[in-house]
Design a protein around this nucleic acid. Structure first.
Lengths: 202, 202
DNA sequence: GATGTAAGATAGTAATTAATTACTATCTTT
DNA sequence: AAAGATAGTAATTAATTACTATCTTACATC
């Protein structure tokens, strides 16, 4: 059991920093997270952060990389353990919801990055993350069609967009009111309607 | 034709201020909009703003009131001119998309308000706006059910949530890439899947 | 045309911010 | 154990922020 070791190797310090930011984002507006508040959470002086990151933007970039990595790993696993494309869609959806419920700061940060009109490094991370995600969904949907589980008349690209949108909409509304509890509670019923929208007639 | 009249009555000045903020939000991260940048856009000195608003928060509140008013007016009209509940849903959806396409800064501001963990006055505005919106949607959906157009097995609350989520998801993804053009282009196909999800079997 | 008031300009303030600096403590390697 | 490398501290910096105090101008009303 270690008690706040004062000195950490650089890579561990970076990892701890990322965790601190994700934690803080769950508690407050990410745009109001200062280098001072990050340092305080880590019991470190503010200046020390800049020994490990060249700038604040670099911190955000590292955090978004962490998010992309973990989210993709989680949904990937969900997808691959499911028996059918249809089951995979549901499994991925729930894994996504679960990931956000465990890290409520993540959507906060992502939406924050979206708002900047210019292309920050962090925003680029988000874009490629969602791009890849969407491609995988689209492939799943196509597979579901060829198996006869999904309706051929459904636009696959639009279906992938709506899949992600369904998550985003749920998240936004639970951010407004109800929080993580509401997110988990409403997810199944909302996903059921989505499924009804793409499934082939019985 | 008026040429930037230097002096404006207070109420007009407030209106112009709101327009300036909505414009600016379309171009940059709303959290980075400063009182100085608002004033510059209006060709006014920064201090003069505080003759008309007691604080920056008051400006945001006024802007959100403007948004709520206009959006509700637009969707209300769309709803009331439609012949059936089903047609009304589509009409409201498209009116909503059109409103955002005309004012791309609006979702940016709303998402920005969502991120603050505490309940700012502006965040409260957003919450009641969406609450009212959702209630109206739910009523429409119930009406559609009783007419036999919508499936009884569909959860009305979840359907209303997903309706809003569909808009939000579309908006977010167009903010990431493609902008207003993509928003308008993808809206119909995505809405079609939503409709398929709630409509009764033919 | 004089006059009172509403609106704007000018020039500040105090607080907060990311980043930098000079220095110190701690670990690692030989 | 010496020496170099790594990590952290404390204090400071320049820039930016919302907000304010004081002075000046424009306009409506008589």
């Amino acid at each position: 059991m270690e008690h706040n070791p004062r000195h950490l190797p650089a890579d561990e310090r970076r990892a701890v920093t990322i965790e601190a930011v994700v934690e803080l984002a769950a508690e407050q507006n990410p745009s109001e997270i200062t280098t001072a508040s990050i340092a305080k959470r880590m019991k470190l002086t503010q200046g020390a952060l800049f020994r490990h990151f060249p700038s604040k933007k670099a911190i955000w970039k590292a955090v978004m990389e962490w998010v992309a990595e973990r989210l993709l790993a989680r949904t990937d696993k969900a997808e691959q353990t499911a028996p059918t494309p249809l089951a995979a869609l549901e499994s991925v959806f729930m894994a996504h919801i679960d990931f956000i419920a465990r890290h409520p700061g993540v959507p906060r940060m992502i939406f924050g990055e979206l708002q900047s009109a210019s292309d920050t490094p962090a925003k680029l991370m988000v874009r490629t993350l969602i791009d890849n995600y969407k491609k995988r969904l689209q492939a799943l949907i196509e597979k579901g069609k060829s198996r006869g589980d999904l309706a051929l008349e459904v636009d696959s690209a639009a279906a992938a967009t709506l899949f992600i949108g369904t998550v985003q909409g749920l998240v936004i509304q639970s951010m407004l009111d109800g929080g993580v509890k509401r997110l988990r509670a409403e997810a199944p019923a909302v996903f059921a309607i989505y499924m009804r929208g793409i499934r082939s007639a019985p």
